[in-house]
Design a protein around this nucleic acid. Structure first.
Lengths: 121, 121
DNA sequence: TTTATATATGAACAACTGTTCAACTATTTA
DNA sequence: TAAATAGTTGAACAGTTGTTCATATATAAA
């Protein structure tokens, strides 16, 4: 079995009481993954802009692309990500697709983040 | 000049009034980048676990590694990311480094996210 | 029906991310 | 002093991400 000097702690710990106490409170893996995924979706400048824009106004893909100075394709790809995460919804009107935020569910989180960033500037 | 059928909208828009109205409200690039970066840091399961653990208790690298069942190296790398973003701080005691959350600044944001995820389960 | 337009999408690609591994520093203990 | 331990770090690697490009679909207009 290969052992480096570095792996001592991988199977041990310093303070078993502390570790056990925190371990008991740890959220289930599913919750951790969900939380990370939620934050990750918000962790891209293009998506941040899209969400902010849609929090102001319902907009079509073309207007979003113009607004963000991005290609329609790039915007469309990102809208799909946001759609999959149920953060935005859309209505079709003729050949246009008007996107809006799916609900206020994420708006609070987004605003909380915005407050933090604007505070620390 | 190369033009595809697809690039019409890249320099145009559908509803100039809407676009202009939203454009006026758009946050400055710096804010958008900061917001995205903040969310991105929270958008990783390992870092989510670290932040949650440290919100319960001050912990050393070794205990964190044991708790998360990750290598010390992996934890240390992530702690550096969190340190750079000023999300965690540490005190040295002998050869140990005890980490804790830098302030409650991010705690609210984290809890807001947690509430969302736990609500939708 | 033909043409133009709004959007969606798969493939390809470069850039980025998180982990591991090995090596290093600093501190403690024998 | 030498050995062990806690932590840090750079390089390498695989996996992921976001964009572009080309193409496809659907609707509207000519």
């Amino acid at each position: 079995m290969k052992r480096t000097k570095n792996d001592v702690c991988e199977v041990s710990f310093i303070d078993s009481k502390k570790v056990a106490a925190v371990k008991k409170k740890l959220k289930p893996e599913r919750t951790v993954q969900g939380l990370a995924e939620t934050f990750k979706v918000l962790g891209d400048p293009t998506r941040v802009k899209i969400i902010f824009a849609l929090s102001q106004q319902e907009l079509c893909v073309c207007d979003l692309a113009s607004l963000l100075e991005a290609s329609k394709s790039a915007v469309s790809h990102q809208l799909r990500v946001l759609r999959n995460m149920k953060l935005v919804k859309y209505r079709k009107d003729g050949k246009m697709a008007f996107y809006s935020l799916d609900d206020d569910h994420i708006k609070n989180l987004f605003d909380e983040g915005l407050r933090h960033v604007e505070e620390s500037e």
